[in-house]
Write a protein that binds this DNA or RNA. Structure first.
Lengths: 364, 364
DNA sequence: TTGAAAGCGATACCAC
DNA sequence: GTGGTATCGCTTTCAA
């Protein structure tokens, strides 16, 4: 079908065929443009290795030819780096999209990474995800947000010998970023006791034990304070109670599995039907406190007159609710930003504990 | 330093040295175990190609040697696949962690992907992210959530010829998943007019124009209904208004850039100080409606007696607020789940429009 | 400034 | 069921 063309035309036609037929690679582009592969590579990776004009020309031609830049798999195989930051989450991913505190943290992380043009890979903390392939080798650096459910993934990450920043827990020989859970919780509890004196209290805890049980912890084994921020908060509540001469035992502490409405309502309902009824509820998240507040309303219990409620985190809803929730502020977004900066420049930072701050509002 | 050992020992020593010295690759493992590389590869990828006993042995040895499985870069270079699903977001990542509707969507997506042991890569919809490397070649399939800010990334994705599911907008030749924005918005507006008759109204819109301007749209150019769910909702409000004989013009429509408290407060404040004051506020998200509600409270305007407010999305806070917000429910989590299933099995699904549903509560 | 060539780590075909 | 080997696309040294 194709008419016979003069040789000049034929050459173009040959190139066009190359363009139409093959998938574009650095090599085909080099052939079409009649330069070496090294030159194309340099155009993308080392602007200083060739003239600005040539680089510009190459980049334009690549665009025209539909070559979008070096293949990341090949590049990363060659260089051993991907430029991706892994964000290892303690649980399933879905949980982190549900929890206000986690999303604020991720927001902070993504702000910094986005600005730096760095991609982030969200990784679940479950072993089965990494079993048959070493997914953990994709990122160049890691932010580990909370102790992963399966300890195996920690080993996999450590064996990579890449920069790691742990958040809300610590690992030997790695940068860590924590928040003053104990101090904040203690201050809040002391405030409550200073208002109400030594009365009965209950704690609505969050993942104090490793199962998904929701209810009184009684004498169940609790997670270690080193790995569990909730445990740190619990000890603070207990110490504050001890200072006014009362003891918080396992019958007055509820466990929830997730910081959500349903768990909060269930725990608060149980706690508020205990005898004697608690005069204060120490909740380990604002979400739980908000749920407790709604239960109190249903039960016609006046807050704060008959019941004081304190939360933790200081999410926006805590401030906006009526009555507004007294809570311990932690800088979640800032924590995310800082974690990202730390992992990008490990040498410029040291491990830190960020301050928390009691925000006294209407519920406690 | 090493003492002279009998040859049997020496062989072990040689292997140990291999173990200690080299980074583990499929090849070194094969050498140490004295089998071929193909066999190791098969142990990980094709259990049927070797005896169960041998496979078990190999897997155990790999674990002992600290070989965590095939390198994803090398594997993906060879096979052309990564098993990763890309979730392309319209804007910066941070925005999606801030917006209740987006996080619900992501929650749905991640539930399905997590269960399927598939990793997801969140990708910003900005061109500059992909400029010097074809990051878009990493995922095997794409969910595109809302029209990307830069149209260039669409081209990059399309040139990959991989399964694509678009959400909240459509692209020729790709599966799409939408929600009945027009129907829901119209039903809500009609409900409001049926209650209050033909009075002055205002619209608090969300990204109706492409800039980050917050204020009256007046006669600014609006985004096309094909690409903008907000525009679809606006047309629905207008049509419902027309049915009772009133017109909603650019002076009665506010634009916000983000569905957040600050933008909502600003727009609502302006809208409620207009003359004549609107008797109804049609808000394009619950977050905006909640902000408007709080402004009304500040201004001592009785809701719903003096002002009706309707939202969109039906996020949990809408239900829990006092008064509870009348809104249009859209199945965000389900939308996420479905998008994930569609992208995993494109052949089993067709493009769909999910129904929305008016939830009449107290504000409108 | 450019070109040739080695090799990153794995897979899959084909022969045994 | 196992072993040899070409190849995926790129980066980088070295020499020209």
């Amino acid at each position: 079908m194709a008419p016979c063309l003069p040789s000049g035309e034929r050459r173009v036609s040959k190139n066009d065929k190359k363009i139409a037929t093959r998938r574009m690679t650095l090599k085909t582009v080099a052939e079409v443009l009649n330069v070496s592969t090294a030159t194309i590579s340099n155009a993308f990776n080392r602007p200083d290795q060739l003239s600005a004009a040539l680089r510009e020309h190459i980049l334009q031609e690549c665009e025209r030819l539909g070559y979008n830049g070096p293949n990341p798999a090949a590049r990363s195989l060659r260089t051993g780096a991907t430029g991706i930051v892994g964000v290892m989450l303690a649980e399933r991913l879905a949980y982190n999209f549900r929890d206000g505190c986690a999303t604020e943290f991720l927001q902070g992380v993504s702000e910094v990474l986005d600005d730096a043009r760095i991609n982030m890979l969200l990784m679940p903390g479950r072993d089965d995800f990494y079993q048959l392939q070493s997914l953990e080798s994709i990122p160049d650096r890691y932010i580990v947000y909370g102790p992963p459910r399966d300890i195996g993934v920690i080993n996999r990450i450590e064996s990579q010998r890449k920069p790691v920043v742990t958040v809300d827990f610590s690992l030997p020989n790695h940068l860590s970023l924590n928040v003053d859970n104990y101090g904040g919780a203690k201050q809040a509890a002391k405030h409550v006791f200073s208002k109400m004196g030594a009365g009965p209290v209950a704690v609505i805890g969050l993942r104090l034990i490793s199962s998904d049980y929701v209810g009184r912890i009684k004498d169940r084994a609790l997670l270690d304070p080193i790995m569990s921020i909730s445990r740190q908060r619990l000890e603070a509540y207990r110490d504050a109670a001890a200072e006014v001469g009362i003891e918080i035992n396992g019958d007055q502490v509820w466990n929830t599995h997730e910081s959500n409405w349903a768990d909060g309502v269930k725990a608060a309902r149980e706690a508020l039907s205990a005898t004697p009824r608690p005069q204060a509820l120490f909740c380990m998240s604002d979400q739980l406190a908000l749920a407790a507040l709604s239960v109190a309303r249903d039960l016609n219990i006046k807050v704060p007159d008959q019941l004081r409620i304190i939360g933790f985190d200081d999410i926006p809803e805590a401030r906006r609710s009526h009555p507004a929730v007294t809570t311990v502020y932690q800088p979640s977004i800032e924590k995310g930003r800082l974690a990202a900066m730390m992992v990008l420049h490990p040498d410029r930072y040291e491990s830190r504990v960020l301050p928390t701050q009691l925000h006294i509002r209407e519920t406690g």
